[in-house]
Computed example of a mutant assay.
Amino acid sequence: MAVSCNDDERKRRLRGLGYTDAEIDVVDKEEYGKLDATNQKAYVKQDIKACLQRADLHVSNPDSGNMVSHFNSLADQLLTFVALMIRPGLVTPTPLERCMQIAYTAKLNSGCISRQVGAVVTDVNFSVQSVGWNDTPFGQVPCSLRNRFDLTNGHDQDAYSEYEKLDVKFISAALAGNEKFLKVASTGRNISYCFKDEYNQLTGKDNQVHTRSLHAEENAFLQIAKYGGRGVEDGKLFTTASPCELCSKKAYQLGIKEIYYIDPYPGIAMSHILMGGSKNPKLIIFSGAIGRAFHNLYSPKLSFKDELNALSL
């Protein structure tokens, strides 16, 4: 289970507990930073990002504007979950859960070796117009199916770009990097690699633009254009992460009015792009069940008709 609130509220609560902004930054880097698998502490410290990605029950815990009770929204969500645990299928999924479940399922199609993200675009009535996940453009081989040794040995050449095959500096760096994976390769694992990381290491930069994959939200938007879908102005976007700066601009241009997200993007997409102008969409942290919890909570153990007939005997 993941319990979330928006970032401004989170920081305000931490300040209320006596944390300074500098201390909050330290906590964020420790608990939400990039995982260093070579550091033993990485396996015992808090990993908020992984929690958000793996959780199948999401509870939104925003600051309440209700002066009578500060916990009405939180209590409603928890009571719903408990009731469904006691009596699976008591109610049907909400439109929000239904759409986010589709996005959650879609992300499993991703061949990205860093993280998997799914997205769904609907019209104003929650009718699904397109589905997307972060992956390479159609016709290119996903990173999960490529192998750094195939690249340097000249195998499966259609899987690699002209730059990867012909740039002398890149090939030299790839050959040097192969050394540390020889032991892993002997286990039979496919030795994939992230082009963005390799290129950034080679150039000494940290640029996200060199990723091979489309973002999930971007992919969902493009599917509408590719297959001639209906307009989505005033529609909704569901994402198992949250839109980056570039995807946020696309969502704004399409006239998306509500964005439901799970994992806040570590950038200025929300405050700078989505909250600037006269047609700002609503940003809403998702709450509900997805994944295994979705099926466990909403699948009745016995059809209600059969249950009533059995109880009437």
Rank of each mutant, 00 (worst) to 15 (best):
L237W: 03
K196W: 01
V124S: 14
N66V: 09
L246A: 11
V27L: 15
R15Y: 01
L308N: 07
R230I: 03
N134P: 08
A2F: 12
V232S: 07
R10C: 07
D36H: 11
N6S: 04
V27G: 00
G235M: 06
I273V: 15
L96F: 06
A83M: 13
G18W: 02
S130M: 05
D8N: 03
I259H: 01
V121A: 05
I268Q: 13
S127W: 04
V128A: 10
D263T: 13
Y32W: 12
I290Y: 09
Q53K: 15
A75M: 05
Y261T: 03
L302G: 00
Q157P: 00
M1K: 09
Y19R: 02
S278A: 10
R212A: 06
Q201R: 10
M85G: 12
N61C: 11
K183W: 00
G177T: 02
R292E: 13
Q253K: 14
G139H: 08
R212Y: 01
Q223M: 14
T136R: 15
L145M: 13
P243F: 04
P281L: 08
A269L: 08
C112Y: 05
I262L: 14
A55D: 05
S114I: 15
E217R: 03
S73L: 10
L274F: 06
E217V: 06
T20E: 03
Y104S: 10
D135V: 07
A174G: 00
Y252W: 09
I284H: 01
S213R: 06
C51L: 13
K183H: 01
P95H: 07
I259Y: 01
F71D: 10
A83V: 01
A22L: 08
D28E: 15
R10S: 03
K49W: 00
K279G: 03
D206C: 04
L52V: 12
D135Y: 06
G229A: 04
I24L: 05
S186A: 15
R115F: 13
